[in-house]
Design a protein around this nucleic acid. Structure first.
Lengths: 351, 351
DNA sequence: CTGAAAGCGCTTACAG
DNA sequence: CTGAAAGCGCTTACAG
């Protein structure tokens, strides 16, 4: 049974300020004053207007007011994420929402899916809706298309990956240093033959992490061996396959550095299946869910995803508030969390 | 070094159709015709207008056009989720985005956090921005505040949980039948003493799953024992604690039904820590990530989260397109995925 | 303290 | 095929 069968299909159009004015016997301008809580309206008129608004169920039209208002703000920002469904993106979105919420700002979000055409479409869609600012995890390698938009006064902040061919704010993780730290940890535990399994070589974070890996090897005087380095792994199962190949090879590594959580998962699956999880050391970049249930626990380089989102949102709102600074570039530190997999000892004896 | 140091701080205001008209020597209306690809403009004028638009970097203002257009559509919908950061919500968001994307519709999303005040605030924020429709995972127990909005012609669809005190479309999972199926599976494997660990008793899905549990027991002639039933578990660690209590009790259950993935994780942690993961059977509602790495694998009732989002979005767009149907109520089937934890045999012998 | 007029950037409804 | 006028729902700038 319908709760309100009698009104089910009646569609009254939405009341306007003009109608509220008519019902309350005042002017449009007075209604506007009351709705915006401007000072200098007599208590009687305030009461009348509020009553009329209530009885008509008046709901202010924020898009109309934003069109006319001198600041032109829509109190809406746009978020371009890798994929709203992946844990990194959604943690980012959550942290940004938190900052936006406190300011009465709504958040438009979309998935770029590592597709530069999609990135431009989404940016255009948000711009045509006149968002007050943009937070972007870029997929393409040329953000110059946003130059005009930036000059037109739309603040924008890049997160996780820096913009290319565009000078703008960015908030990044210490990818190079983080990877170096992780590989250094394996070296400290007696490993020399350390494989590297990485993401798409077109993603800047993957490039930086590989550089960090090489840096750690170089500092320890270990030669770089391309045969135990694999990039462009796009899924856990690809990492699993390459791990199997490594283990079946003539000269397998004693340790693995996984540049990303999906890759860590693939490596762990391969090691578990081969019964090598307590033999081959593993350090991963990024945390994985439910890490407590797996033995040995994953030793990992953890990034501050909430911090990335919060910092990006704060920078963005500073710009929206009119601050005119040079481009800001923030780099957030990582943390090495020790859980067992990275402390499996390697063959090298340190004195 | 800045890529464009010379223009860094110059903020040109955004060009309007009027300016494009002036530059191209045509009228505002002709520019509007060209931008909207209306038929009946001479090729020469089209060319002139396009050139002028390009040289001014004209970007259409969709909010302004939506204010004037007769359909009034903003091509934006609003999503009220439990928490954009949780996997269920973000999978839902992703599926909805997919459908919206094909129609050129942008998605506003926000987290309700099981807070009914927050639910109303978010709904109001989206409504004041004149979204074309709302998809809601309700937290509160009274959605009558949306009645007026619904009558005003804003389509809305409820997902995962039905609306209360409001007649509207809904897309739900078969929670009762799914839970019954899971508990039935444990009974079929020889269990009679089956504990139930559930979420907040104010959430309708939790209520339905508990009812499904009781239904399965009743059908098998097993008496309901409140001492091994716990509701209102809000985190994995709470489920872990209660599992420990169960195991330490005088008459522990031989099997556990976990009504939700966070609870499954807590139970698994407790069982693993006690070394009982191959002794006590477990079936969970909802999948957990990385299930492949854990032994025994979690036997689970899997819901079609993408299907929920896709169906909800399709229903919503049907309404936005003007279909005037009675309220639609869809219920999506679940699947029992067998992975080992639910097939641990209980004490009862079936002939 | 209150309100009539103009205008935000567009589209609609008309007229030529 | 083209354009001048009016108006979407509001706020601004001004006058009383």
């Amino acid at each position: 049974m319908s709760v309100n069968a009698n009104v089910e299909f009646s569609t009254r159009s939405r009341p306007t300020m003009k109608e509220v004015a008519a019902l309350s016997g005042t002017s449009l301008k007075t209604v506007s004053r009351v709705m915006n809580q401007e000072a200098g309206v007599s208590p009687e008129l305030i009461k009348k207007v509020k009553q009329a608004a209530l009885s008509l169920n008046y709901q202010p039209n924020f898009t109309a007011s934003s069109l006319r208002r001198s600041d032109g703000k829509t109190n809406t920002i746009g978020l371009l994420l890798e994929d709203v469904a992946n844990p990194f993106s959604s943690a980012l979105q959550r942290a940004i929402e938190e900052v936006a919420r406190d300011r009465g700002v709504a958040v438009l979000a979309g998935s770029v899916d590592e597709d530069s055409a999609r990135e431009r479409e989404l940016a255009a869609a948000f711009i045509s809706r006149r968002v007050d600012g943009l937070i972007v995890v870029p997929a393409g390698h040329d953000q110059s298309y946003l130059q005009i938009e930036k000059q037109s006064g739309t603040p924008m902040v890049f997160v996780d990956r820096p913009p290319s061919l565009l000078d703008a704010d960015s908030v990044l993780t210490a990818n190079h240093d983080g990877a170096r730290l992780g590989v250094q940890h394996l070296i400290d535990n007696g490993h020399e033959r350390i494989a590297y399994l990485g993401d798409l070589a077109t993603i800047s974070t993957a490039v930086d992490r590989l550089a960090g890996y090489r840096d750690a090897l170089e500092r320890a005087g270990i030669e770089f061996d391309p045969s135990i380095v694999k990039q462009n792994l796009r899924a856990s199962f690809e990492a699993e396959i390459f791990t199997n190949e490594l283990m079946d090879s003539d000269y397998p590594p004693s340790a693995i550095f996984a540049s990303q959580n999906l890759i860590s998962i693939g490596v762990m699956q391969a090691l578990h299946r081969a019964g090598l999880q307590n033999t081959i050391a593993l350090v991963g970049f990024d945390d994985i869910p439910m890490v407590e249930l797996i033995t040995p626990g994953l030793t990992a380089i953890i990034q501050d995803v909430s911090g990335l989102g919060k910092t990006a949102a704060e920078l963005l709102f500073d710009r929206i508030d009119g601050e005119q600074l040079e481009s800001q570039h923030r780099v957030l530190d990582v943390e090495l969390v020790i859980r067992g997999s990275g402390e499996i000892q390697g063959p090298v004896r340190h004195s």
